[in-house]
């Protein structure tokens, strides 16, 4: 009797150990995937940083390139990039916000119009960026006569970023608790008042994140800009001037200019730092925004 119980107990113990072992293996697997995800960007930074950091200096940021970019700095590219980014975002934010509001507030997800808009957004976001480049070239550069210019580049980029911004913003708006909507409805608040005072502020931090994601996407884009904003390494003095974006510069230095690798890496470091800084600023802003209300 007693031995019977003992053996049962032992068997239980064994099972328990097995379960523990299994548990440990699974935990290890999950940990290592997490570690991999964390180490990936670090490895990337390391590879680029080792080559790029030695080139970095204030001088690098504030001078124009020489020898097709092998030496000298990236001032014109920085300025062009910011110009293009500004035009892109100035176009994307109002249109995108309006469309996202329409999708989240004015139509139900299963209505015909809602489905049509949703479908076209999904198609748009699946289009390869090179196609947006060709489209921008054909429409903005040629048909509208804007030529290779900051404006063409910014607008083409806007077309590409728009679906991403709309979708992420729509999600941000939909995340607003239904309790607020119900309260607003019961109090007979106008849609405008609800959107302006409750919906947008409560979704602000997530919209900021949508903005960041879009900015990152726009900053990183190369293919669209090669065809529309052009290659010229001068400082643009007007939005109708051609200008070379940072990402195009990186591409050009590493593909077309023998010996351009170190400066390409340095430019890449600048680009990544820029993205990190934008992230931090937006994060701060969204936090501040939440506290204000």
């Amino acid at each position: 009797m007693v031995s019977n119980i003992k053996s049962k107990y032992a068997a239980n113990e064994l099972n328990l150990n097995k379960a523990k072992f299994k548990h440990n293996i699974i935990a290890l697997a999950i940990w290592s995937t997490a570690l991999l995800t964390v180490s990936l960007p670090l490895m990337m930074l390391w590879t680029i940083g080792v080559e790029g950091f030695p080139q970095l200096s204030l001088q690098f940021l504030l001078t124009e390139p020489t020898h097709a970019g092998r030496s000298g700095g990236i001032l014109p590219m920085l300025i062009s990039t910011l110009w293009i980014l500004c035009i892109c975002l100035v176009t994307v934010v109002p249109i995108g916000l309006g469309c996202a509001l329409y999708l989240s507030e004015c139509v139900t997800a299963d209505s015909t119009i809602g489905r049509i808009v949703g479908l076209s957004l999904d198609v748009l976001s699946g289009v390869p960026s090179i196609v947006f480049g060709l489209f921008g070239y054909a429409v903005f550069a040629i048909q509208l006569g804007l030529g290779f210019s900051i404006l063409s580049g910014g607008l083409s980029l806007a077309c590409m970023v728009l679906p991403l911004f709309i979708r992420t913003t729509e999600q941000a708006l939909r995340a607003c608790p239904t309790a607020y909507r119900r309260a607003a409805e019961a109090l007979d608040l106008s849609l405008f008042a609800f959107v302006a005072r409750i919906l947008l502020p409560s979704a602000a931090s997530n919209i900021a994140i949508a903005f960041i994601i879009s900015t990152g996407r726009a900053l990183a884009e190369t293919a669209v800009l090669i065809f529309t904003a052009g290659y010229v390494t001068r400082i643009p003095s007007h939005w109708s001037d051609s200008g070379r974006a940072l990402s195009v510069h990186i591409y050009d230095l590493s593909m077309n200019v023998p010996g351009g690798q170190p400066n390409a890496a340095a430019t890449a470091v600048v680009l990544m730092l820029l993205i990190i800084v934008i992230n931090l600023v937006a994060h701060r802003l969204s936090k501040r925004w939440q506290l204000l209300e």
């Binding site: 309790a179 607020y180 607003a184 019961a186 109090l187 007979d188 608040l189 106008s190 005072r197 409750i198």
Partner: peptide, 27 residues
């Protein structure tokens, strides 16, 4: 306005206490 409603889950707006009342009045 004639028929007010209060819900199961308290649902004040994410505004200040006074603004919760002032905002609908303003509207």
């Amino acid at each position: 306005r004639q028929v007010g409603m209060v819900f199961q889950q308290p649902n004040p707006f994410p505004l200040s206490i006074e603004e919760n009342i002032r905002f609908p009045l303003k509207e």
